[in-house]
Nucleic acid binder design. Sequence first.
DNA 1: GATTGTATTTTTGTGGTAGAAAATACGTCA
DNA 2: TGACGTATTTTCTACCACAAAAATACAATC
Lengths: 326, 326
Amino acid sequence: MPSRPATRSRISSRRRATSPRRAVTQAALAARILTWLRQQDLKPGDHVPERLATEEFHVSRTPVRAALALLTEQGLLERHDQRGFFIADGFAAARGTVAAETPDSTLHDAILRDRFSKRLDAEVTAAHLTRRYRASRAIVLRVLGRLQKDGIVERALGQRWVFLPALDSLRSQEDSHRFRLILEPAAFLQPGFALDAKRARDLKSALAELAGQDARTLDLKRALETDIAFHEAMGDASNNRFLAEAIRRQSRLRRLATTSMQVPPARLIESCREHLAILEAVAAGELARAAELMREHLASSLRARPGFVNRGAPPMLRATMMGGAR
Amino acid sequence: MPSRPATRSRISSRRRATSPRRAVTQAALAARILTWLRQQDLKPGDHVPERLATEEFHVSRTPVRAALALLTEQGLLERHDQRGFFIADGFAAARGTVAAETPDSTLHDAILRDRFSKRLDAEVTAAHLTRRYRASRAIVLRVLGRLQKDGIVERALGQRWVFLPALDSLRSQEDSHRFRLILEPAAFLQPGFALDAKRARDLKSALAELAGQDARTLDLKRALETDIAFHEAMGDASNNRFLAEAIRRQSRLRRLATTSMQVPPARLIESCREHLAILEAVAAGELARAAELMREHLASSLRARPGFVNRGAPPMLRATMMGGAR
DNA sequence: GATTGTATTTTTGTGGTAGAAAATACGTCA
DNA sequence: TGACGTATTTTCTACCACAAAAATACAATC
């Protein structure tokens, strides 16, 4: 087996007295409810009826109540007897997310890390992973399922799981960029394009803040998240669910590949300015111009990609040469 | 529960003496090997080494040998002692596929049918489905997983599975068409666009045959399959795996929705002619023209959509009406 | 009348085990 | 040497019982 010995963290499935399964899904739901609440225009004292979350997330009141109780513990909500949950004073201020470390996410990240660094082969079996990470079979299968949904692995007909060429290969990065170059400018031109007002405002302030920062002290993770949020918002605004979904898919891949593809910080800041220009065009109702700006923005990013144009052969030739073998 | 009583076919998981699980995956692999062999330029007498299929499908020799043996039984291959499998004389002639009826596919189709005709609610639980179809939980979960992969259902955080608006709603159909209008013309303009020669030939002959047929006696199922094969081939030729994948995703949805959306046969035949024109443009190396033809082709299909422009009732109302009877 | 609080019922996830299927090791033949 | 044939080992799936979580029913409150 070509797999080299590697980090062997124990990813346990045993129930510990302190954190049964509940804590995991509860936290996940709480996190989703929180981002959902943040998207709305809520003031301290506003009521948060359980029913709304129930309908939004297609779950019963039981887990919703548990999640809201969790948010109450964190001071984001307040609970009044017989009246329910209300937005707390600290709601707007608090920045932290409720992101929990789950056995699943631990394994998920470990697998991605080891795969990107080629410590994992392109073909693995579930049994291999259970041994390597000392995780229960159930967890391994769940994580593989999630990776499959994200287009990272594919299940073969037998008992192998195959890693697809991810964004770590130069070739896939180029494919991804060209794909986005097709998709994203088109979003603005869809009939019914409409950007949510609050969302536009939030994006604008986040982008403006980043745009003013120094390239040397930039929080790269936050910059990437803002970048992704911007692109997904444009997809959602397109009013076409397939387009939105396709853009979101690419976002997910980009987020995962962030470790291996390093964009220069200066480019990220430039990016923010371009995003702001696009938002302005949208606000002015000049959608055709927004589309054109988006095209230029993505083309710039494509050019800025490390190792793309700066090295050797020109784009067309390169593409053709690579076309041969696949 | 609004679900009305409905077809209750028993979908069994019990192993019958005659067909254990093996027969299913075996047949599935055999079918995939067959289409794979058909894509290659093979003559009777050509050797089919096990290793090639092994590498192509990421499975071990054991299932490959079983599948090849199955194809031998059907007279498509020949087996010579100590030398292996060879293309049989009847290989090119035989048209039939090895498509097997599995418990999974039965349930899969039943669920889709019942959902399209609104006999199933938009939110279901696995337990509900096991009762309704008298299927084992394992099968239900597998099928739900597949439907999820295809973007038909989504798993909620609790124990509900939510059907996404599929191509049965008029709105989604329009979204789908507009999405394809973005994607598919762009395929031709990707650097490295290259259509496999044999594939082009096969498509051309299939399309030519359909184009010459009478609208009244047209085999609708075959026409749809050819249509899909054409569009997927263009995606594959684009040399961009994300683009190809996105097109394939749409194809899968279209195939599933075929029962509920009825395209007039005359339009299908016209379609074939347009496909042929695109192939000619590609063959002549006029990719920009091919892209333009594709745009027109998809735009025509969008216009030809039943109930879009031509019919009376406004979209929302119609969609509701269609829900009633199937 | 709608929403919350509480209790009850239903559904799901997990772990262990037997048997089926896939992977693999090894000998043989062109 | 590389491909096939056969035997052995490993891995997976189905099934079962129990604990945990979600859904639901019903009473209480605004």
